[in-house]
Design a protein around this nucleic acid. Sequence first.
DNA 1: CAAGTGATTAGC
DNA 2: CTAATCACTTGC
Length: 197
Amino acid sequence: MKLTHDFFVRKDTLHIASDLLGKLLVVSNETGERVSGMIVETEAYLGEIDKAAHSFSGRRTARNEITYAEGGHVYVFFIYGLYYQLNFVCSHIDDPSVVLIRAVEPVEGIEIMRTRRGKMPDKNLTSGPGKLCIAFGIDKSFNGEDLLGDRIWVEEYKNFSRDEIVSGKRIGVGYAEEFAEMPWRFWLTNNLFVSKK
DNA sequence: CAAGTGATTAGC
DNA sequence: CTAATCACTTGC
C-alpha cells in the first residue's frame, strides 16, 4: 500500500523520520520495472530552526524551493561534485522540514543495482545516501516529484518495534553548532546496510 | 586516511 | 563576477 500525503503532511518531522524505517522505497525505471529497498536509516532536518538545514532561518533559493511545498514531494540535490541525495519534503506548506534517506536494504531489482554500482560487494550497493541514489538511478530530474505519482513512492512493508530503532547524532553536520548534537538520525539495530555504526 | 568533484551560494 | 563550501565515496 502506497503511503499517502497524510503520512508526510504531519507536523512532527522527527516522527516521520522514525516511522519511515521499515517502509519500502520504490522507483519505477524507464521500462516500468520496479527497483525497491527497505528504508533502514534516515535523518530529519527541521527547516527554519535547524542550522544544519538548507532552509535555516528562512533561506529560500532555487535549489531548496521545493522544500517549502506541502509534504509528500521529493527534494534531490547534488553534493561534493559527485553525488545526489534523496529527501522527502514533510509537514505543511511553507514549513521546509525534510527527511533525508541515508540507507536502504535492496529488495527488488538487485541486478539493476549491481549494474549501476559497478563491481561492488552487495552490502555496499545502497549503504549510504549517495550510493542509494546511484543504485536507484535517482538524479536531479526527480527533484519536485510527487510521492503519489508513478515514478517514485513509498509503500508499507515491515513494522519494527521501538526497541529495534535507535537514534543518534547526524552525519557530516559538524558546522551546525548546537544542532550538530541533536539526535535526529534514526536507524534499525543490527541492519547490515546502515551506513555507520 | 585524504583527494576529488562541480553545482550552488554568498559575498564582494 | 569570483571564491569557498559541501546531508560523500573510494581507493591509496
